[in-house]
């Protein structure tokens, strides 16, 4: 590891200033992804600007009924927060489905959103990888890619985004709050992560030096039934092969609100807009859920070894929707 400078920020403004003053800097949250990648030689920052102690460590209800999660709220505290558990159960469940108790105690909301892909070629500096070294090729495309994307990938990159939390946030219509040289701005979580296209080195739309200050959960949808379900190789402590977060509102026998997102299938949490459209106004039956899931996944382009994900994701989605709207309630 190359030596690096270290500075702890006391405020959001100071964090941005410290970043600007240190070329080659990275923000340090819980460090559970960044320090790992530094040990692997994938990240080589010249300086760490420590934002883990910024006073952004609270979950607050805003006057309009929305919920603001500070960027430095630890994953474990987010999952345990009574308001989050009661109003946005899928978010608590998604966080608890990821990593381990130790890691969640350190990991922050901001760092979780910005964690990098677990593609093994990305993590190995001896391998080609367009995301780590643009133009070097994609080792996974013709290599080991059982865990990789089936939706929205490009010839340059087939990686998936590994966050469970982000999938629930996308389904729940959350926004990311950013602060940068041009001041604050807000981006929907579902549009925060990019598809790889010709620039897989850019995971998200965040600008250089921009800081995540928080995440906003809207009042609309709060308290509706929501659920997160994840399929993985082990019962615990493994990344998703595929996952689904869904929130649904049924009134008078028809679907009035639907938010559905897939994890493990794409370079970003995959908001299933077509499936949602198909469900709105329809009766919440198993047949409708199956049609909606199939419609969304029709665009899937599996690779040699990951076609299994399509069926897995479809069955997960149908199961989650059935659990949210048991047949007796329809």
């Amino acid at each position: 590891m190359k030596p690096y400078a270290y500075a702890r920020a006391g405020s959001v403004e100071e964090a941005a200033e410290l970043y600007a003053a240190h070329p080659g800097a990275r923000y340090l949250g819980g460090g559970t992804n960044l320090v790992d990648l530094m040990k692997l030689g994938v990240e080589e920052p010249a300086a760490l600007v420590d934002v883990s102690r910024l006073p952004l460590d609270t979950v607050d209800e805003l006057p309009d009924g929305s919920l603001r999660i500070g960027a430095t709220v630890r994953n474990s505290d987010l999952a345990a927060h009574p308001t989050v558990r009661d109003r946005y159960p899928a978010l608590s469940q998604a966080v608890l489905a990821g990593a381990s108790g130790q890691l969640r105690n350190a990991a922050t909301t901001g760092g979780n959103l910005l964690q990098r892909t677990r593609c093994p070629y990305f993590q190995d500096t001896d391998e080609p990888c367009n995301k780590r070294a643009p133009g070097s090729g994609c080792g996974a495309r013709d290599g080991v890619h059982r865990d990789h994307a089936v939706l929205g990938h490009s010839p340059q990159c087939i990686a998936t985004h590994p966050s469970d939390m982000a999938v629930a946030l996308a389904a729940l219509d959350a926004d990311v709050e950013l602060y940068g040289a041009d001041g604050p701005r807000i981006v929907p979580v579902a549009e925060f992560h990019r598809l790889p296209g010709d620039h897989p080195e850019q995971d998200t739309v965040i600008r250089p030096g921009e800081l995540i200050t928080g995440v906003l959960l809207p009042a609309a949808g709060a308290g509706l039934p929501s659920l997160y379900r994840k399929a993985r190789d082990r019962a615990s402590y493994a990344f998703a092969l595929a996952s689904v977060a869904a929130v649904i509102g049924v009134e008078g026998g028809v679907v009035r609100h639907a938010g559905i997102a897939f994890g493990g299938l794409a370079h970003r949490p995959w908001r299933a807009r077509q499936a949602e459209q198909a469900l709105l106004g329809a009766a919440p039956t198993t047949a409708a859920f199956e049609r909606a899931a199939d419609l969304e996944l029709a665009a899937a382009e599996p690779l040699r070894d990951n076609a299994y994900k399509i069926r897995l994701a479809r069955n997960l989605a149908v199961d989650v929707l059935e659990r949210l709207v048991p047949p007796a309630a329809t």
Binding site: Y6, R8, V35, D36, Q102, L103, N105
Partner: peptide
């Protein structure tokens, strides 16, 4: 961060000692 052998308590909370820069 994968095995937990380095687990210690920081301010009473369990964490992986291998991923935490001491300076922080």
């Amino acid at each position: 961060g994968q095995c937990g052998a380095c687990t210690v308590l920081v301010d009473g909370r369990r964490v992986n000692g291998c991923l935490l820069p001491a300076v922080a």
